[in-house]
Design a protein around this nucleic acid. Sequence first.
DNA 1: TAGTGGTCTAGACCACCCC
DNA 2: GGGTGGTCTAGACCACTAA
Lengths: 235, 235
Amino acid sequence: MASSRPSYARIKEYLLSEIESGAYVAGDRIPAENALATQFGVSRMTANKAIRDLVQKGLLVRRVGSGTFVSQRKSESSLFDIRNIADEIRLRGGEHSSQIIALKEVAASEEVAVFLGVRTGTRVFYSEIVHRENGVAIQLERRHVNPKLAPDYLQQDFERQTPNAILVARYPVTDVENSVEAMLPSDEEAALLEMSPSDACLLVVRRTWSGELLISYTQLLHPGKRYKLNASRNT
Amino acid sequence: MASSRPSYARIKEYLLSEIESGAYVAGDRIPAENALATQFGVSRMTANKAIRDLVQKGLLVRRVGSGTFVSQRKSESSLFDIRNIADEIRLRGGEHSSQIIALKEVAASEEVAVFLGVRTGTRVFYSEIVHRENGVAIQLERRHVNPKLAPDYLQQDFERQTPNAILVARYPVTDVENSVEAMLPSDEEAALLEMSPSDACLLVVRRTWSGELLISYTQLLHPGKRYKLNASRNT
DNA sequence: TAGTGGTCTAGACCACCCC
DNA sequence: GGGTGGTCTAGACCACTAA
């Protein structure tokens, strides 16, 4: 069925488009819950849900007795953006190369299933690639992809295009979630990254969405001595 | 009236205390919305609100058709947030404590001078504090502050307020620059963080500005096993 | 005083998961 | 099939803000 989408999603989209188009700018007051409820023919609680979600994203702020306003926040950093590693390396003037370690279909483990939003045991695509800058290994990329969203994922030429570039070309990425932690590599991971197993690694776990579709769940492991993340924020 | 506290607050407190006391541990399923609603004599939507808040804090995760579970997440923080560690911890329902390691005036080393934008050898303020969540060390904060911008920095009560809060109160932070890397701690650092020197650490190097003024240069060292950074982007 | 968000009710239907 | 969370309704009272 085409439209089983929740009602509050329509209201969120409306508000987002008004903000994006500039109809509402930072500091502007948006319509009250009651007004939105009437306008969209829903109950106040439903309008409330839409607003609540946008507040959580940081796009709106609420003041009791006063109203709901477009937040002042400006754009966030770009280095946590979806830039793919190949572009990043080229941007620094380095030469990027890919070494394909594995390329297959696997049954989703519980961990992967949870993160990818599928049932445990579902067949998912898996790629494992070592990325090098001027021949030096700087990233081990392990990616799980929902096969429903990219049925021919495994047939791509990963020597020429990174998984990221392939997926982005197909689905515009709208949401990214990253987490960053430090850990020690396993012996196998250290060998693939050509580093000492007793040195620290930086692990980035990344999920990307295109609208409501969760596209992929990726682990990016970097040798601590050869890689650093940057992020700035301007208010 | 005496008790103007919302009903959902009682439910939140109940769940928090059950989690903190260990009655529910990571992975456990908590009572369903209907059960909580009955137990506390409220409507389901009110129980929902309590759970929703705890999900947002990251303490619970929900799975449709299955239940609501205690999350197993590590301590987290957002890269783009200038929120101070104490608020972060309290937001998760934890208890924050500070242990002052050093508080003094030092001559800026070359590294510090470069990052802080002063001449080498200039006297700068230096604070070194271990932050704990429920008694567990999760951050070693080393901060260099330009004395011209906060002449009474060293006279503050760092047991009660974090350096961040003190500086933010004085200067609204407009720009933040972070870099993140993984490394092994020195023996001294490991001792302060009560961790093994052979385990990985997450190092965040942060500079904050207020307008054109560079306020401080800070190193935040975290045990890899107890801390994780988060960064999301929504379009 | 009129409008706003904060909270709350007592129901309801649905998709999904697990048995 | 029975339980779970996701969504939704059509009302309500309150504290707060602003005019």
